[in-house]
């Protein structure tokens, strides 16, 4: 890792993600976005902190709750918004939508709408990075619910025995979709990594500086030992599993309690009010500019709907 990031910079990045996610929630509710979206409100510190610790060419693979990861890896906000709006974005031309978008030109190798499926893909990317060189280590984000998918465990074991450097970030956000994590998972992710002789680290996923420092350590360990590293980041999902989720399963008062550890609130409290105001002004300007650009992008050309099934 180069110089540690500043909290002000990380707050700005988190805030931009938060504003985009809040705008998308409104857009689903007022019909500008069709279909559901899976927002990362409350979890912004994990992609922001992680990507601050990555090398410039480290590939990132995420889940359907991946807007924060795409933006943190460098996908322009207007392209992401246009893709979610079903417009002809420079990402996927409206073919991917909110939950399956990718931008390899930015190092973002895609969200995934199948729980856990990004891990074997990231393993393969790691095999390629390991063989082709360039000091690149892929990062894959999964939720704690994905730790109960078979292909995740196949991949952790395979990465371990084949000595493949790879960083697996498990975002433990308290819920497996709509059911409390603790009721569905026998042993937490970090403890399960030990079963595969994988180095595990745990971090407060609501503290972007801590996330950046931990991922920086993880990256160094993965490179030095030529091995996978699992980072379990503890956080809280401050919204539904998806945009239309009424969250009736939440105990009364839970969300209000969890908001006390909202990563934005925590970061803001450590900044001067001038710095915070600077970030807020900058983020609001950037997001409204991106929104205007996205809404001005053309709709996809229906005549091209059959293209790119195969190359050529």
């Amino acid at each position: 890792m180069t110089a540690p990031p500043s909290l002000e910079d990380l707050y700005l990045r988190m805030l931009q993600i938060r504003l985009i996610e809040e705008e998308l929630l409104r857009a689903v509710q007022d019909g500008r976005v069709t279909g559901s979206t899976h927002l990362c409100i409350g979890q912004e510190a994990i992609p922001v902190g992680t990507c601050a610790a990555l090398g410039p060419n480290d590939p990132v693979v995420a889940t359907y709750r991946g807007h924060g990861w795409a933006l943190s890896r460098g996908v322009p906000a207007e392209e992401l918004l246009a893709e979610v709006f079903g417009r002809d974005s420079d990402l996927n031309g409206g073919r991917a939508g909110s939950a399956y978008l990718s931008g390899p030109q930015y190092g973002f190798y895609g969200e995934n709408s199948i729980v856990g499926a990004g891990v074997p893909i990231a393993l393969g990317l790691a095999m390629a990075c390991n063989r082709l060189g360039g000091n690149r280590i892929p990062v894959v984000s999964i939720g704690d619910g994905a730790m109960n998918q078979g292909n995740v465990h196949e991949s952790l074991n395979m990465a371990s025995v084949l000595n493949i450097p790879l960083i697996v970030v498990v975002e433990n956000n308290g819920y497996v979709e709509m059911t409390p994590s603790a009721t569905l998972t026998a042993v937490p992710a970090a403890a399960r990594a030990a079963a595969y002789s994988i180095i595990a680290m745990e971090v407060d996923g609501n503290d972007p500086l801590a996330v950046a420092a931990t991922v920086s350590d993880a990256r160094e360990a993965a490179l030095q030992k030529s091995a996978p590293v699992l980072v379990e980041a503890h956080t809280r999902r401050l919204g539904g599993h998806y945009s239309g989720d009424a969250q009736q399963y939440r105990p009364a008062g839970e969300l209000e309690g969890w908001r006390a550890t909202d990563p934005l609130t925590l970061a803001r409290s450590q900044l001067t009010s001038e710095a915070a105001a600077r970030c807020e002004q900058q983020a609001e300007g950037a997001v409204s500019a991106a929104l205007a650009l996205a809404e001005g992008m053309p709709t996809p050309n229906v005549e091209e709907v059959m293209t790119h099934v195969f190359s050529g």
């Binding site: 693979v61 074997p120 393969g124 082709l132």
Partner: peptide, 25 residues
Amino acid sequence: VFDTPISESAMIGAALGAAMGGLRP
């Protein structure tokens, strides 16, 4: 040319990632 565990899902998923990353698995 290398041996893998009996993990078809990881093997085939990794082939996709490896192909995205520039190999021809």
